[in-house]
């Protein structure tokens, strides 16, 4: 690991200033991704600004029904919180489907959003990778692609974003609250992560020095009837092959409201807006669920090693919606 200066941020403004002053400085959350990357040589900051003692550690319900999640709330606390379990079960389930008990005790809300791809070539500094070293090429194309994208990829990068939590937050229309050198801004979670295009080195729209302070969830009544389904190579402690976050409100057999997002299949949490459009106002039947899935997945482009994911995702979505409709 390259030597670096460790410093503990005194307050949010000072943390931002520390990064603005140093292009090679980074924020540190629970460390579960960053420390790993520093050891692997994937990240080599010269200054590490620990933000975990800043007072962003609460989950609060605001007067208008929104829920504000502090950036430092640990994944395990967020998953266990009563407000989250009852009003946004898909979020609690997504968190609990991710990583392990120990890692969830360490991982922060902000760090989880900012975690980087698990593409094996990205994590191995000896192989070409456009995301780690722009212009060096993509080793995954023509290589091992089981865990790679089937939606929204480019010829420069076919990696997926690995977070489960972010998939649920995408379906929930969450907003990321960010503090930068010129003040605060709010970024809709669906616009927070990027598709790779010709700049795969940029995972998100966050600028250097911008500090995530919170994530806000809208009141969103439909979310109370929601779930997260994750398909993986082993039953626990594995990243998603595909995953589905879905919320469904059926009234008298008709779909009044619906939210769907996919994980493990794109460079960002994939909000299935086409499927949602088809479903809103139609009958809650398996045929409609299948039609919605097929429409959303018409744009899917797979690699030789992950063609199975298209059908797997289709079936997972249909099963998730059927489960929600059956229990309605």
């Amino acid at each position: 690991m390259k030597p670096f200066v460790y410093e503990r941020a005194r307050d949010a403004a000072q943390a931002v200033a520390a990064l603005v002053a140093d292009p090679d400085a980074v924020f540190l959350g629970g460390g579960t991704n960053l420390v790993d990357h520093m050891r692997l040589g994937v990240a080599s900051p010269d200054r590490v600004v620990d933000v975990t003692r800043l007072p962003f550690d609460r989950i609060e319900q605001l007067a208008d029904g929104r829920v504000c999640i502090g950036a430092n709330v640990r994944n395990s606390e967020l998953a266990a919180h009563r407000l989250i379990r009852t009003r946004y079960p898909m979020l609690s389930q997504a968190l609990l489907a991710g990583a392990s008990g120990q890692l969830r005790n360490m991982a922060t809300t902000a760090g989880n959003l900012m975690q980087r791809t698990r593409c094996v070539y990205f994590q191995n500094v000896t192989t070409p990778c456009n995301k780690r070293q722009p212009g060096s090429g993509c080793s995954a194309i023509g290589g091992y692609t089981r865990y790679h994208a089937i939606l929204g990829a480019s010829e420069h990068c076919i990696a997926v974003h690995p977070s489960d939590m972010a998939v649920a937050m995408s379906a929930l229309d969450a907003r990321v609250v960010v503090l930068g050198p010129s003040g605060e801004r709010r970024i809709p979670l669906v616009d927070f992560h990027r598709l790779p295009g010709d700049e795969p080195e940029r995972d998100t729209v966050l600028r250097h020095g911008e500090l995530i302070t919170a994530v806000e969830l809208p009141a969103l009544p439909v979310a109370a009837h929601s779930l997260y389904r994750k398909v993986r190579d082993r039953r626990s402690f594995a990243f998603a092959l595909v995953s589905v976050a879905a919320a469904l409100d059926v009234r008298g057999g008709t779909i009044a409201d619906v939210r769907i997002a996919f994980g493990g299949v794109a460079h960002k949490p994939w909000r299935a807006t086409r499927a949602e459009e088809i479903l809103r106002g139609t009958d809650a039947t398996p045929e409609q669920f299948e039609r919605a899935a097929d429409t959303e997945l018409a744009a899917a482009r797979s690699q030789p090693g992950n063609a199975f994911k298209v059908k797997m995702l289709r079936n997972t979505l249909v099963a998730a919606l059927q489960e929600l409709a059956g229990a309605a």
Binding site: L28, G31, T32, V35, T52, G101, Q102, L103, N105, M106
Partner: peptide, 18 residues
């Protein structure tokens, strides 16, 4: 795995100075 303030964590991914 060790317990920090009673909670289990992976000590290998945690910087000592934190």
């Amino acid at each position: 795995t060790v317990l920090v303030n009673g909670r289990r964590i992976n000590a290998c991914l945690s910087l000592a100075l934190t």
